[in-house]
Each structure stands twice: as structure tokens, then as C-alpha cells.
């Protein structure tokens, strides 16, 4: 068990539940966090702001479903090594934007690049090999596979995934053992090791969120895109998930996540992008955002901003 100051004020609640203590002993502020915040300190808090070292750049992305323009993003950059939150009321287009960036949906117009490489037209299954992985708002745990098999599925470049190798266990057994070891480490980190051999269908909703995140990490990504990782997760587990997300940044990954819980956004993100009605209406540090009148307006109409207003 970690000292309670490591996880902030909510950790006493977390400590009641042995399954949810924080995974990494992050000090109040890690080096990675300091670096990310310092890099973003000079960035103007306005929509489309250029970042010093963007890992992801999107321009002119537009997607309409019939009459509804779900996404109309002029420009968005995501700073490498940061935790960036994407917020906005229901129906703002966040999930659609995720789908477009990861190739699960095609924009009507627009270009985007990841790590300097053009990504338009790249099939979704090629994203993982390039270091981009996403999770889904509606959890997609493969319920009829054991937890450990869910995890091993995530590893890329598996020899045994070619059928002719699959026939000859000798060709893939060793790699499989390495993958399994890595999967076990991640499971331990996400406190799922006791569920290792259970079917994923036996996990609770929150555990499935954890599993999906851990499985995504098996692809060894540089950019992790999480669509509402905290939805339906109890407060104690949220605290632990928070720490996991911070841990990803500390390991050098970039995180882009969608979230409605403003407390969490405030707690872990280095930068916040606000969408409403398909557009980016504001950007800035969490503090900039909680005092931005445009954001309050957008949320007020949708009565989503309870905790945002509390911050004022």
C-alpha cells in the first residue's frame, strides 16, 4: 500500500479496497509531468494552437452524417508526451473525431498526421503498428476469451498469427512466452492478475475498462487514445485509473482521452481541448479552461458542467 499522499485526497477511500491502490509511486508531480506542463506553458490558450512538439496534427477534418455536421475541426495538435483531455457535451463529436483519427470512419475532408506521417486513408488495423491505439466508449472486452488471452491478442508482430506458423508450435512458442510474461506484468499493474484465467465476461464493468486499457498497452503504443476510460467506474477505482494514465505519460507515452468528469480532467491533464457541436471551441491548460466563458456556455446549455462550475 502506498502512502496516502501519493494518490491525493481520495486515497483513503481507495485504501479501503485492496484491489484499487495506485500502481505507481508517482510523486505529486513527476518529471514527465513537469516537462509536459513546461512545454505547454508558452502555448496560447486558443482553438487550434500550435504546440512545440506535436505528435498528432489534424487539419480541416469534417464529417457530416446527413444533415448533422458531427465533426468540423479546423486544426488540432497534440503535444508529445502530454496528457491531453478532449471534453465537450454529449454529441459534441468527440467519439466521431476519435473514429476519424483512427481510421474507423472516413472524413469528408481533412488531413492528419501522426509522428510526421500522413494518416489519411490508412486502414484502422495499420494504426497499431504505427504506435497509435485506441479504446472504445462502449467497452469491447472479448467476453468469451480468458483475460490473459485478451491481453496476448494485443501484442503486435506475432509470428503465430500467420496460419502456416500456427500449425507448427515451435515457430511461435517462445515469442508467446515472452508476450505472456509482458501480459502478466501489465495485469499485475492493473490489479487484474487474480482474474488472469477467468473469462473476460466474468469481469465487472470497471475491470473491463481496465482490461481494455491494459490490452491496448500490449500493442506498445506511443499514442494512447482513451474514449471515456472512467465511465461507469466507481470513485475508488477512478483514482487508481488516474494514476495509471499518469503512469503512461511517465513512461513516455502520449495520452489523448475523452472524459466528462471535470475533476479527473483537472487532476490529470496537461492540456484540455473543448469540443461543442463538432468544433473545437477552446483549448488551454485545465485552469484556463475552467475560467473560459465559452466553455461554461457550452456546458451550461447541456447542464454537464456541475463540477466545472464548482471549480469557479
Amino acid at each position: 500500500m502506498l502512502p496516502s499522499d501519493a494518490t491525493g485526497p481520495a486515497s483513503p477511500a481507495a485504501a479501503d479496497d485492496p484491489g484499487v491502490d495506485a500502481p505507481l509511486a508517482t510523486a505529486a508531480e513527476s518529471d514527465a509531468a513537469r516537462r509536459a506542463r513546461a512545454a505547454l506553458a508558452g502555448v496560447a490558450p486558443e482553438p487550434g494552437a500550435a504546440k512545440p512538439d506535436p505528435i498528432l496534427t489534424a487539419a480541416g477534418i469534417r464529417r457530416a452524417f446527413g444533415g448533422i455536421v458531427a465533426v468540423d475541426v479546423e486544426r488540432v495538435e497534440v503535444q508529445r508526451g502530454s496528457i491531453t483531455a478532449l471534453i465537450g457535451p454529449n454529441g459534441a463529436g468527440k467519439t466521431t473525431f476519435f473514429n476519424l483519427l483512427t481510421g474507423f470512419d472516413k472524413p469528408d475532408t481533412g488531413t492528419w498526421s501522426f509522428d510526421g506521417k500522413d494518416m489519411a486513408g490508412v486502414a484502422p488495423h495499420r494504426m497499431a503498428a504505427r504506435g497509435m491505439v485506441r479504446t472504445f466508449q462502449l467497452t469491447k472486452s472479448l467476453t468469451k476469451l480468458p483475460v490473459i488471452e485478451n491481453m496476448k491478442l494485443g501484442a503486435t508482430g506475432q509470428k503465430g498469427e500467420k496460419w502456416w506458423n500456427g500449425l507448427i508450435p515451435g515457430t511461435w512458442k517462445q515469442q508467446e512466452a515472452e508476450i505472456e510474461a509482458r501480459a502478466d506484468q501489465l495485469l499485475q499493474r492493473f490489479k487484474l492478475d487474480h482474474m488472469r484465467d477467468e473469462y473476460a465476461g466474468a469481469l465487472s464493468g470497471g475491470q473491463r475498462k481496465l482490461l481494455e486499457m491494459a490490452r491496448a498497452l500490449m500493442t506498445d503504443p506511443t499514442l494512447v487514445m482513451l474514449d471515456e476510460p472512467m465511465a461507469g467506474v466507481n470513485p475508488a477505482l477512478k483514482q487508481s485509473l488516474n494514476a495509471h494514465v499518469k503512469g503512461l505519460r511517465d513512461e513516455g507515452m502520449t495520452v489523448l482521452f475523452v472524459e466528462h468528469d471535470m475533476d479527473m480532467v483537472h487532476d490529470i491533464s496537461d492540456w484540455v481541448i473543448v469540443m461543442a457541436e463538432g468544433r473545437v471551441i477552446a483549448e488551454g491548460t485545465p485552469d484556463d479552461i475552467s475560467s473560459n466563458p465559452a466553455v461554461i456556455d457550452a456546458y451550461l446549455g447541456m447542464h454537464q458542467g456541475r463540477s466545472l462550475l464548482e471549480d469557479l
Binding site: R134, T143, K144, T156, K159, G160, W172
Partner: peptide, 24 residues
């Protein structure tokens, strides 16, 4: 019993999840 079979079984359950993990 091979990773190939694992991908198939995963596809049976959720294609998009498998796609997001980099499988064609």
C-alpha cells in the same frame, strides 16, 4: 491453439476491437 486461432475467436466476438489491436 495458436495465436492465429486466437485472432479468429476474437473476431467472432468483436471485429472492431481486433482491428484496433492491429489485426487485418
Amino acid at each position: 491453439r495458436s495465436p492465429w486461432g486466437r485472432v479468429l475467436k476474437a473476431i467472432r466476438e468483436d471485429e472492431d476491437a481486433v482491428r484496433s489491436l492491429g489485426k487485418n
